[in-house]
Design a protein around this nucleic acid. Sequence first.
DNA 1: TTTATGACCTGAG
DNA 2: ACTCAGGCCATAA
Length: 107
Amino acid sequence: MGGRTKSSRSDSSGKVYDAVRLIPPGKVATYGQIACMIGKPGRARMVGRIMSRTPAALRLPCHRVVNSQGRLAPGWDGQRSLLVAEGVLFRNNGLVDMRRCGWDLLL
DNA sequence: TTTATGACCTGAG
DNA sequence: ACTCAGGCCATAA
């Protein structure tokens, strides 16, 4: 292919979607974690942007993606209910209990 | 081009 | 608990 590769168009979106699909029910993953999984450490912000633009039709468990503090997505009413329904534990401050529900491959 | 904004992260005070 | 600063990157104006 000669010529400039147009690329740069959220090429990562497909991989992000795949990674999100792997998060087991009852657990949550952070944006930074997803970024690492797709081989782009430090790109947490990009993951967040992709999530915000993810079509609902894909039916991804995007409610299982939270920030490293365990805070839920702003302006999304219902994320909390979905997580609670799966057994995710919340602390009194309204944040997810990352120590128990953070998806760590170690354990 | 520069500036500002955003479902971010980590560290420091 | 909070704010700030520095780092990261895509988009919009």
